[in-house]
Amino acid sequence: MNIKILIIAFLISCGAYSQETIVPLENLLGYESEQNEVVYFKDVNNLLNKYTGNWIYDDGTHYLKITVTKKEHLPQDFFGKLLNPNYEDNLSIKMIYKLNGVEQYNTTSFGATTALINGNVIESTNKISLEYYEPTSSCRRQKHANLTLEFNPSNTLGGNGTLGWTRTSRISYVSPNTECPDGTLVDSSDFIIPANLVLSRE
C-alpha cells in the first residue's frame, strides 16, 4: 500500500516538474514568461554555492556570524496568489550579532526558510542582492534596505576568500506614524548591524 502511494506521489511530482520551464537564475529579471507558463529560475550554473556556509566578522566591538544556505525550488506564491516567477532558488541568511559582547540578534532558531535576509538577484558572477531586514518586536519596520554580498576569491592556493557585506537603504514611503493592527506604531529605529563589513569564512 505504502509503495503504491510513493509511486503515485513520484509520478505526480514528475508530472508537475515536467511542465516547468527551467531558466538559469541569472536570467531572472530579463526573462519574459508566456501566459500560464510555469517557470523555475534554477541555479543551474551553481552561482549561489560560493556564498554558502558560515562567515564571521569580529573587530572586538561588532561580532557577526552568518550562516548562508541555498534553498531550492521555492514556490513564489502566497496562498494561491501568484506573482512571477513561480519557483526559484535563493539564499537565506541566519545570524548572530553581538555588540560589545552582548547579543543583540540571534535568528539561528528561526525556521529554515524564515530568515529575515534572503534573495537571489544576481548582479554579476560574484555579486548578489538580497532583501534585508533585522529582527523587530513590532509588526513591521519603517525602514527598508537591500544587502549586497560580494565574494572575493582568495589569491592564495586553498584560500577561502572573503565576503563583502554592503547594506543600502531603500525608500520605504512608510510614515513613522503608521500603526500596527494592535494600535502600536511601526518600528522606526535604524538598523544596528554595520552597513559595510568584510567577513571571513569560519
Binding site: Q76, F78, L83, F110, T113, G119, E131
Partner: peptide
C-alpha cells in the same frame, strides 16, 4: 507563507524586483 514571509514582505520583494 511557507517561507515565513508576511504578505507585505512578499509583495515588497516582488515590487523591488519586478
Amino acid at each position: 507563507n511557507s517561507e515565513g514571509q508576511t504578505f507585505q514582505e512578499f509583495v515588497l520583494k516582488s515590487f523591488e524586483r519586478e
